[in-house]
């Protein structure tokens, strides 16, 4: 009896793994299909029945995409936007998070409450007035206009505040003050070095977000020289719709940096997403 039950369980387990494997295939399929299509010739792309792997792996689509549209420029723009945003988000989160966590001053509760309360309002709900403001500044079609909304992250401030208030002892800061250190010195030499993990988490979020921004560049950047990968890809799609191979090649180029980041920092990203998601 016991033996039969364990056999049933084992079969059930295999069935579960079967379903999960099938699911895993579905999860990677779009990316895999994108990848193999990018290496196919035009003749191999539009045929029935479809072939999975290209007969000759050709990089013609990649070189073709870079010739038809300035994807090199788009790529650098994406990297520039994501890196500036990441650096700024890390700095502002460290400073604001520390101040909210460790200092008492009038208005502290109100300000932090505002940061929290407005974090839930989606960007899409206030992008029109923001656009109008930037028209007034004459920042339409400028890098600073694209990056401005991504220079700080409510979520990052919140995360750093949690970290600093729970894991950095106030006595350490006091010790620094006794030795005559200024507040900026304490921030840079006491708090920052003890916040590596939390700062890295904030940085990773900012980088992923900054690399993928789309609707804001769509509004604010009309000059092709300012397009990021995402915007460049969509405009390229409208212009060269028949050129699936090149389109897939461009898509691969846009996905690869995120894949590298993810595969290198997989564990940390998943854990942080989970923790911050739950705290937020």
């Amino acid at each position: 009896m016991g033996h039969r039950r364990s056999l049933g369980r084992r079969l059930g387990l295999y069935a579960c793994h079967g379903v999960l494997m099938l699911g895993a295939l579905v999860m990677v399929m779009p990316m895999l299909w994108m990848l193999v299509t990018a290496f196919k010739s035009a003749a191999e792309i539009a045929i029935l029945p479809p072939v999975f792997l290209p007969k000759d792996w050709s990089v013609a689509n990649f070189s073709g995409a870079f010739e038809t549209a300035p994807f090199g420029r788009f790529f650098l723009n994406s990297a520039f936007i994501a890196l500036v945003s990441t650096a700024s988000v890390m700095a502002t989160s460290l400073v604001a998070g520390t101040v909210f966590a460790k200092y008492q001053f009038p208005g502290r509760k109100l300000l932090f409450g505002l940061v929290l309360a407005t974090a839930i309002v989606p960007f899409e709900a206030y992008m029109i007035p923001l656009y109008v403001q930037l028209v007034g500044l004459e920042w339409v079609n400028t890098y600073q206009g694209i990056i401005l909304p991504y220079l700080f992250m409510a979520f990052g401030i919140f995360l750093m505040r949690q970290h600093v208030s729970s894991s950095i002892p106030t006595e350490l800061m006091e010790a620094g003050r006794v030795d005559g250190a200024g507040e900026w010195w304490i921030l840079a030499r006491v708090i920052a070095p003890l916040s590596g993990n939390a700062l890295a988490a904030v940085g990773i979020f900012a980088f992923i977000q900054g690399w993928g921004i789309f609707i804001w560049p769509l509004l604010i950047a009309n000059d092709q020289l300012l397009f990021n990968m995402e915007l460049g890809l969509t405009q390229f799609q409208f212009a060269f719709s028949a050129d699936i191979g090149k389109l897939m090649a461009g898509s691969v180029v846009s996905v690869v940096p995120m894949l590298i980041v993810f595969l290198l920092l997989r564990r940390r990203i998943i854990e942080n997403m989970a923790l911050t998601g739950l705290k937020g």
Partner: peptide, 22 residues
């Protein structure tokens, strides 16, 4: 976990292009 999480971090535009082709 890695495989199921993968789509979460990939940018939307390229994966939407891939899905469009699918």
């Amino acid at each position: 976990q890695t495989v199921y999480f993968l789509p979460v971090i990939t940018p939307m535009v390229p994966v939407a292009i891939a899905w469009k082709w699918i």
